Amino acid sequence: MTSLEKPDLGTSTVRWRWPSVHPEGYKFAAIAALVSLALFIFVAEWLGWIGVIITIWILAFFRDPIRTTPKDPKMIVAPADGLVTMIANVPPPRELVGEGGLGTEPVTRVSIFMSVFDVHINRSPIAGTISRVVYISGKFLSADLDKASEENERQHILVEGKDGMRIGFTQIAGLVARRIVPFVKPGDIIAGGQRVGLIRFGSRVDVYLPAGTGAQVLLGQRTIAGETVLAVAGRDERIDGIAQ
């Protein structure tokens, strides 16, 4: 390639398409559809149409769109779609510390709240090996409360990159959510942005950034799982923004 040539950045061949539905959602949609049919036949037409709307909403809830993830090993991407509701310096959960895990010193935690209208497929913040998966039963407090990270039903996942960087993140069930569905287990090798699980229905994901790494997102910002860059390893510069 000569100095006057530019690298091929691709052509405009990417087109919007309907997102697929994760198989986990088909059984709920089927149940809603059968109830809707029964309402049409045995009760009242207007109730049947309400059932149809609920069926469509269930399919939308379990939508599983394709995401494009940057491959830079220093970039830590969002594991969830949703709203950044908390950014705080806190000690990592005890389930993620110890030998082969995170340290005990406080690190930056970014909390992403998923409403019932967000995509609920969660993705890995980095590429690497799943070294720990810890499920804990608990309460079902509103997921936007700070104490939900310690009291609610939750699942901790620890992934270690090839360079030794460890990222811990926690799926937290919320007020409406009643089940965390894992797609991975310890020992699995995953790509950055790969699907690791989902939470039904409405919830939160906490990400614990490595020591010396600060958030590159702002409170009130919306994230896209597998695409939004939450942080860059080793960068701890504060960023400012404005809600408008």
Score class of each variant (00 low, 15 high):
residue 211 A to R: 12
residue 116 V to L: 12
residue 23 P to S: 14
residue 145 L to W: 05
residue 10 G to D: 08
residue 24 E to C: 06
residue 55 T to W: 04
residue 60 A to P: 02
residue 135 Y to G: 01
residue 66 I to V: 11
residue 99 E to K: 15
residue 150 E to C: 07
residue 220 G to M: 08
residue 126 I to C: 06
residue 168 G to V: 02
residue 120 H to Q: 13
residue 142 S to N: 15
residue 240 D to F: 12
residue 104 T to H: 12
residue 30 A to Y: 11
residue 237 E to M: 10
residue 138 G to I: 06
residue 206 D to S: 10
residue 200 R to N: 14
residue 97 V to A: 04
residue 229 V to G: 02
residue 30 A to M: 14
residue 9 L to M: 14
residue 168 G to S: 04
residue 195 R to H: 13
residue 130 I to L: 07
residue 131 S to R: 02
residue 217 V to R: 06
residue 59 L to C: 08
residue 2 T to D: 14
residue 172 I to A: 01
residue 90 V to L: 09
residue 158 L to Y: 05
residue 140 F to W: 13
residue 8 D to E: 14
residue 82 G to L: 05
residue 240 D to V: 15
residue 167 I to P: 01
residue 87 I to A: 09
residue 225 A to L: 03
residue 242 I to C: 09
residue 95 E to S: 07
residue 114 M to G: 02
residue 9 L to N: 12
residue 128 G to S: 04
residue 68 T to W: 12
residue 109 R to V: 02
residue 238 R to G: 09
residue 147 K to H: 12
residue 144 D to M: 13
residue 194 Q to R: 06
residue 16 W to V: 08
residue 33 A to V: 08
residue 155 Q to A: 13
residue 187 G to A: 11
residue 3 S to I: 14
residue 129 T to Y: 01
residue 31 I to P: 03
residue 36 S to C: 11
residue 98 G to P: 03
residue 182 P to N: 13
residue 121 I to N: 03
residue 61 F to V: 00
residue 93 P to K: 03
residue 35 V to T: 14
residue 138 G to P: 02
residue 3 S to T: 13
residue 184 V to H: 02
residue 50 I to N: 09
residue 241 G to F: 11
residue 73 P to W: 05
residue 52 V to K: 00
residue 121 I to S: 03
residue 66 I to F: 12
residue 194 Q to S: 05
residue 22 H to L: 05
residue 81 D to F: 06
residue 19 P to Q: 07
residue 169 F to C: 00
residue 183 F to M: 12
residue 118 D to H: 10
residue 223 T to I: 04
residue 180 I to H: 04
residue 234 G to R: 07
residue 125 P to G: 08
residue 112 I to K: 03
residue 39 L to R: 07
residue 51 G to Q: 07
residue 35 V to R: 01
residue 103 G to H: 05
residue 153 E to S: 08
residue 24 E to H: 13
residue 174 G to S: 03
residue 173 A to S: 14
